[in-house]
Nucleic acid binder design. Structure first.
Lengths: 157, 157
DNA sequence: CTAACTGCAAACCTTTTGCATTGAC
DNA sequence: GTCAATGCAAAAGGTTTGCAGTTAG
């Protein structure tokens, strides 16, 4: 599609994309964008709020919800449920590409995002086969990660 | 209930699976199971409730939620969010296999479930590659279905 | 300057829970 | 008969909204 192929600094990418969309860039939006962009794991709305609150004590929950909604409808973040392993929460992720793959362990609740040639190839084939102009593709697998499999092999419950 | 026992009648399969799990089969559970099993489309909790209410005016919402939860934790139905095209609702689907593929059109909100050799093959390869004992796999694609693509080609916005 | 955004509080909507009663096994 | 499931009502999330004051462009 139209993604720039030069990587801006971590924590700046989403901010730039907000400006590029012509959206007003307030202090709160900048803060939230930097948080989402720098996040090491998937965050739900409450986690985003609590992290933001530590940097700006006056930010309000409703601003977090409004901003997440705004980013979502502009396609800048995606909303995930990660197989509901942790209840009804939704998680937000800066859209790194149109194709997300998540392996969610129902035992330890860990989330892996595998990469490599197999998965790259898979993306291409799926897009081609679909007869569907896919904007977002999510492949989510719920099951047991390899370390939980080993643990359960040693000590079956 | 007096049909020959060749293959379980549509609307009876889930009922049988409930009994097989040793769960108590109440009238409400039977009704909900038949609804889910016979559903032509994906239903959310409210839709299940309203359909059930037409057949049993005294059924309560909380029973619907409790039953959906029960079926979910026993792996008899899966909970989907269908890319949130229709808000925060969750949809329930009798688990036909461990692998669901949904193509969700963000334009007309239609949901397709493609089948065929490509997708069968994909399931096998993904399961093998993952190094992950996958219990449930969901592949969801959000985009434009072929008829919406055609419509937009004729009349671009 | 002005439309858009924010904080606040209240409303909303879906889902969960405690309790007395009912019903499946 | 016993224990689990149900209906009911109330609570508990999580999210949205109307409003008045504030701010980015």
């Amino acid at each position: 599609m139209d993604s720039p192929r030069v990587a801006p600094r971590a924590g700046e990418r989403l901010v730039n994309r907000i400006r590029d969309k012509g959206l007003r860039l307030t202090g709160q939006r900048r803060l939230l964008a930097e948080l989402l962009d720098g996040a090491e794991q998937h965050l739900d709305a409450d986690a985003v709020y609590r992290l933001a609150k530590r940097k700006d004590g006056s930010i309000h929950r409703s601003t977090v919800y409004r901003t997440l909604h705004l980013l979502k409808i502009h396609g800048l973040v995606d909303e995930l449920d990660l197989m509901h392993v942790a209840g009804e929460r939704h998680y937000y992720e800066v859209r790194p590409s149109a194709f997300h793959i998540h392996l969610v362990c129902t035992s330890c609740r860990g989330v892996q995002e595998p990469g490599g040639p197999f998965w790259e190839d898979l993306k291409k084939k799926v897009a081609k086969e679909a007869g569907f102009r896919a904007e977002v593709v999510r492949l989510e697998m719920g099951g047991r990660c390899s370390s939980c499999q080993r643990r359960e092999f040693r000590k079956p419950d």
